[in-house]
Amino acid sequence: MPTGVHLRDVRKQLFDAAERVLLRAGPDALTSRAVTTEADVAKGVLHRHFTDFDDFLAELVRDRITRLADQAALLHAAAGTRTVAENLVDALTELFDPVTVALTSLIFFRDDLRTRLRHRGNGVPLLVEAREMLAAYLSAECEQGRIAPDAEVDSLSLSLIGAAHLLFAGRRRGTLLDTGELAKTVHTVIADVVQRRLL
Protein backbone atom coordinates (compact mmCIF):
# COMPACT_ATOMS: atom_id res chain seq x y z
CA MET A 1 0.00 0.00 0.00
CA PRO A 2 1.48 3.42 -0.93
CA THR A 3 2.56 5.47 2.05
CA GLY A 4 0.28 8.40 1.21
CA VAL A 5 -2.82 6.25 1.14
CA HIS A 6 -1.83 4.58 4.39
CA LEU A 7 -1.25 7.97 6.03
CA ARG A 8 -4.66 9.24 4.95
CA ASP A 9 -6.33 6.10 6.31
CA VAL A 10 -4.60 6.43 9.68
CA ARG A 11 -5.38 10.15 9.88
CA LYS A 12 -9.05 9.52 9.14
CA GLN A 13 -9.17 6.72 11.69
CA LEU A 14 -7.66 8.98 14.34
CA PHE A 15 -9.82 11.99 13.42
CA ASP A 16 -12.98 9.87 13.53
CA ALA A 17 -11.93 8.51 16.91
CA ALA A 18 -11.28 12.02 18.24
CA GLU A 19 -14.73 13.14 17.11
CA ARG A 20 -16.35 10.18 18.87
CA VAL A 21 -14.50 11.06 22.09
CA LEU A 22 -15.64 14.68 21.77
CA LEU A 23 -19.25 13.64 21.21
CA ARG A 24 -19.28 11.16 24.06
CA ALA A 25 -17.24 12.93 26.73
CA GLY A 26 -16.47 16.49 25.61
CA PRO A 27 -13.22 18.40 25.03
CA ASP A 28 -11.82 17.76 28.54
CA ALA A 29 -11.67 14.04 27.77
CA LEU A 30 -9.75 14.46 24.52
CA THR A 31 -6.22 13.16 25.14
CA SER A 32 -3.79 11.27 22.95
CA ARG A 33 -4.46 8.13 24.99
CA ALA A 34 -8.24 8.53 24.63
CA VAL A 35 -7.89 8.96 20.87
CA THR A 36 -5.63 5.96 20.30
CA THR A 37 -7.76 3.79 22.61
CA GLU A 38 -10.92 4.83 20.74
CA ALA A 39 -9.21 4.21 17.39
CA ASP A 40 -7.97 0.82 18.66
CA VAL A 41 -4.38 1.52 17.64
CA ALA A 42 -1.10 1.47 19.55
CA LYS A 43 -0.26 4.60 21.53
CA GLY A 44 2.72 5.36 19.30
CA VAL A 45 0.68 5.50 16.08
CA LEU A 46 -0.50 9.06 16.69
CA HIS A 47 3.02 10.28 17.36
CA ARG A 48 4.39 8.61 14.25
CA HIS A 49 2.11 10.76 12.09
CA PHE A 50 1.96 13.98 14.13
CA THR A 51 4.72 15.95 15.89
CA ASP A 52 2.77 16.09 19.14
CA PHE A 53 -0.82 16.13 20.36
CA ASP A 54 -1.30 19.84 19.57
CA ASP A 55 -0.14 19.11 16.01
CA PHE A 56 -2.80 16.38 15.84
CA LEU A 57 -5.46 18.75 17.17
CA ALA A 58 -4.43 21.45 14.69
CA GLU A 59 -4.80 19.00 11.81
CA LEU A 60 -8.17 17.87 13.18
CA VAL A 61 -9.38 21.48 13.13
CA ARG A 62 -7.92 22.06 9.65
CA ASP A 63 -9.80 18.99 8.44
CA ARG A 64 -12.98 20.52 9.83
CA ILE A 65 -12.20 23.82 8.08
CA THR A 66 -11.76 21.94 4.79
CA ARG A 67 -15.20 20.40 5.24
CA LEU A 68 -16.59 23.87 5.88
CA ALA A 69 -15.56 24.85 2.34
CA ASP A 70 -18.06 22.33 0.97
CA GLN A 71 -20.83 23.78 3.13
CA ALA A 72 -19.86 27.29 2.01
CA ALA A 73 -20.27 26.32 -1.65
CA LEU A 74 -23.72 24.85 -1.01
CA LEU A 75 -24.83 27.89 0.98
CA HIS A 76 -23.59 30.28 -1.71
CA ALA A 77 -25.53 28.29 -4.31
CA ALA A 78 -28.67 28.63 -2.15
CA ALA A 79 -28.76 32.43 -2.58
CA GLY A 80 -32.07 33.44 -4.10
CA THR A 81 -33.86 30.27 -2.96
CA ARG A 82 -36.26 29.80 -0.03
CA THR A 83 -35.87 32.69 2.42
CA VAL A 84 -32.70 34.30 3.71
CA ALA A 85 -33.57 33.36 7.28
CA GLU A 86 -34.26 29.72 6.42
CA ASN A 87 -30.94 29.43 4.62
CA LEU A 88 -29.09 31.00 7.56
CA VAL A 89 -30.81 28.84 10.19
CA ASP A 90 -29.95 25.68 8.27
CA ALA A 91 -26.35 26.80 7.71
CA LEU A 92 -25.82 27.71 11.36
CA THR A 93 -27.41 24.46 12.56
CA GLU A 94 -25.10 22.44 10.33
CA LEU A 95 -22.10 24.58 11.25
CA PHE A 96 -22.50 24.31 15.01
CA ASP A 97 -22.84 20.57 15.29
CA PRO A 98 -21.57 19.13 18.61
CA VAL A 99 -18.10 18.37 17.22
CA THR A 100 -17.55 21.91 15.96
CA VAL A 101 -18.76 23.39 19.26
CA ALA A 102 -16.34 21.13 21.16
CA LEU A 103 -13.46 21.97 18.81
CA THR A 104 -14.17 25.67 19.26
CA SER A 105 -13.86 25.22 23.02
CA LEU A 106 -10.51 23.49 22.53
CA ILE A 107 -9.28 26.37 20.38
CA PHE A 108 -10.39 28.91 22.99
CA PHE A 109 -8.63 27.22 25.87
CA ARG A 110 -5.46 25.76 24.31
CA ASP A 111 -3.09 28.64 23.58
CA ASP A 112 -0.60 26.49 21.67
CA LEU A 113 -3.33 25.13 19.44
CA ARG A 114 -4.71 28.60 18.74
CA THR A 115 -1.21 29.85 17.88
CA ARG A 116 -0.62 27.00 15.43
CA LEU A 117 -3.93 27.63 13.71
CA ARG A 118 -3.78 31.40 13.44
CA HIS A 119 -2.89 31.69 9.78
CA ARG A 120 -4.33 35.09 8.91
CA GLY A 121 -5.91 38.07 10.60
CA ASN A 122 -7.53 38.04 14.00
CA GLY A 123 -10.26 35.86 15.33
CA VAL A 124 -10.79 32.27 16.34
CA PRO A 125 -9.81 29.75 13.66
CA LEU A 126 -12.84 27.85 12.37
CA LEU A 127 -15.13 30.70 13.40
CA VAL A 128 -13.20 33.04 11.09
CA GLU A 129 -13.91 30.72 8.16
CA ALA A 130 -17.53 30.38 9.25
CA ARG A 131 -17.89 34.15 9.28
CA GLU A 132 -16.40 34.33 5.78
CA MET A 133 -18.89 31.70 4.61
CA LEU A 134 -21.84 33.72 5.88
CA ALA A 135 -20.44 36.99 4.52
CA ALA A 136 -20.06 35.46 1.05
CA TYR A 137 -23.63 34.14 1.20
CA LEU A 138 -25.05 37.48 2.35
CA SER A 139 -23.12 39.27 -0.40
CA ALA A 140 -24.70 36.90 -2.91
CA GLU A 141 -28.12 37.74 -1.48
CA CYS A 142 -27.29 41.44 -1.92
CA GLU A 143 -26.65 40.73 -5.59
CA GLN A 144 -30.01 38.94 -5.76
CA GLY A 145 -31.67 42.06 -4.34
CA ARG A 146 -32.96 40.25 -1.27
CA ILE A 147 -30.73 42.17 1.12
CA ALA A 148 -30.12 45.91 1.12
CA PRO A 149 -27.15 46.79 -1.11
CA ASP A 150 -25.53 48.82 1.67
CA ALA A 151 -25.82 46.04 4.26
CA GLU A 152 -22.70 45.51 6.37
CA VAL A 153 -22.37 41.82 5.60
CA ASP A 154 -19.20 41.38 7.68
CA SER A 155 -20.86 42.81 10.78
CA LEU A 156 -24.02 40.81 10.17
CA SER A 157 -21.96 37.63 9.80
CA LEU A 158 -20.07 38.34 13.01
CA SER A 159 -23.35 38.90 14.87
CA LEU A 160 -24.85 35.70 13.49
CA ILE A 161 -21.78 33.60 14.33
CA GLY A 162 -21.48 35.05 17.84
CA ALA A 163 -25.15 34.67 18.69
CA ALA A 164 -25.45 31.17 17.24
CA HIS A 165 -22.28 30.01 18.99
CA LEU A 166 -23.65 31.17 22.34
CA LEU A 167 -26.91 29.32 21.73
CA PHE A 168 -25.28 26.08 20.62
CA ALA A 169 -22.45 26.14 23.18
CA GLY A 170 -24.96 26.71 25.97
CA ARG A 171 -26.87 23.48 25.42
CA ARG A 172 -26.14 20.37 27.45
CA ARG A 173 -24.19 17.66 25.65
CA GLY A 174 -26.58 15.26 23.94
CA THR A 175 -29.48 17.71 23.77
CA LEU A 176 -30.81 19.43 20.67
CA LEU A 177 -31.11 23.18 20.32
CA ASP A 178 -34.58 24.60 19.90
CA THR A 179 -34.37 25.81 16.29
CA GLY A 180 -37.19 28.23 17.02
CA GLU A 181 -34.87 30.15 19.30
CA LEU A 182 -32.19 30.19 16.61
CA ALA A 183 -34.71 31.34 13.98
CA LYS A 184 -35.84 34.18 16.26
CA THR A 185 -32.23 35.27 16.72
CA VAL A 186 -31.53 35.15 12.97
CA HIS A 187 -34.67 37.19 12.22
CA THR A 188 -33.62 39.79 14.78
CA VAL A 189 -30.09 40.14 13.36
CA ILE A 190 -31.18 40.51 9.72
CA ALA A 191 -34.45 42.39 10.26
CA ASP A 192 -33.10 45.79 9.21
CA VAL A 193 -31.54 44.64 5.93
CA VAL A 194 -33.97 42.06 4.55
CA GLN A 195 -37.37 42.99 3.17
CA ARG A 196 -40.04 41.85 5.61
CA ARG A 197 -41.77 39.62 3.05
CA LEU A 198 -38.48 37.79 2.34
CA LEU A 199 -37.54 37.03 5.94
Rank of each mutant, 00 (worst) to 15 (best):
E129P: 01
P149E: 12
V99R: 08
H187N: 08
A135N: 01
R33V: 09
V128H: 09
E152V: 14
E181I: 14
A91Q: 11
E129C: 02
R64S: 07
K12L: 14
A191Y: 09
V89Q: 02
H165S: 12
G170W: 01
L117G: 01
A78I: 10
R171W: 01
R62E: 07
T93G: 06
K12G: 10
G162I: 12
L198T: 08
E59I: 07
A151S: 02
L167I: 07
V5L: 10
A34L: 00
T51Y: 09
L22H: 03
G123I: 10
Q195N: 15
R196Y: 13
I65V: 12
P2Q: 03
L30C: 05
E143Q: 10
A79V: 05
D90A: 10
V193K: 07
T188R: 15
F56G: 00
T93F: 05
L126K: 04
E143K: 11
T185C: 03
L74G: 08
R110P: 05
V99T: 13
S139G: 13
R67F: 14
I107Q: 03
H47Q: 11
E19W: 07
H187F: 09
G44Y: 15
N122P: 15
E19Q: 14
H49L: 03
A163D: 09
L160P: 07
L167E: 07
E94T: 15
V189T: 08
G170M: 01
A85Y: 01
V153Y: 07
R114I: 09
R171A: 04
D178L: 02
R114S: 13
R33G: 08
C142Q: 13
A151T: 03
V186I: 01
R118C: 12
I65C: 06
A148Q: 13
A151W: 04
L166P: 06
T188H: 11
D192R: 15
D63S: 13
E94C: 07
S105W: 14
K184C: 12
D192E: 10
A183P: 07
R146W: 00
L166N: 11
P27V: 06
I147C: 02
I107A: 00
L92C: 03
Q13H: 14
S157M: 13
E181L: 09
V99S: 04
V45Y: 03
Q13K: 12
S139F: 12
L126S: 02
A191I: 12
V193M: 10
D112M: 15
Q71P: 09
L74F: 12
D192A: 13
T66L: 15
A163S: 14
R20Q: 10
H47D: 04
V189Y: 03
R8G: 04
G44T: 13
A135T: 09
V189G: 03
T3H: 10
L166E: 11
T31L: 05
L106M: 06
R62V: 06
A85S: 11
V84E: 03
R24H: 04
T100Q: 06
L158H: 14
A77L: 04
P2R: 14
L95C: 02
V21Q: 00
H187M: 06
R118T: 14
R24I: 03
K43G: 11
L30V: 07
L7A: 15
D178K: 05
